[in-house]
Amino acid sequence: MSTAQRRIRVLMGKPGLCGHDRGIVLVVMALRDAGMEVIYSGRHNSPESLVEVAIQEDVDVLGVSILAGGHLGLCERLAKLLRERNAQDIVLLAGGFIPPEDIPKLKAFGVREVFRDGAKLEDIVQFIEQVAGERAAA
């Protein structure tokens, strides 16, 4: 029986007000080149809409890029909404301009990993492959 292999699905979005999207577009292309299906939801997404889209698209990973601050509030809200929707199995990742001292707080909220500005694309790809693999095995 020929059963199609499920591809890793990732939703990438930019909550909040920051306008730059060069960084996130580079990540989106790297994930595509690694064979993943990437839903790109553009800029200015509300946390509510990101979580709803993540659910509709049945993604493994929700990645958000935050460059203009507010990451603590946004990520706390995203993690809370995922739990409220019983969708905490979707892996939440954050990237962008994030001070190192905030990383433990973000992780305490439920962000699985943080990729600060300048993180290597290969590392992001590899991390997503790893967590999606764990998810598939679960």
């Binding site: 994930l31 990437v38 790109y40 939801s41 509510e48």
Partner: peptide, 22 residues
């Protein structure tokens, strides 16, 4: 369309439908 090289894809249609996401 998927990329013929990697089999991956960038799915961007719903950017234009964002106002109906919720």
């Amino acid at each position: 369309p998927s990329s013929p090289f990697s089999g991956g894809a960038i799915l961007g249609d719903r950017i234009r439908m964002e106002r109906h996401s919720l």
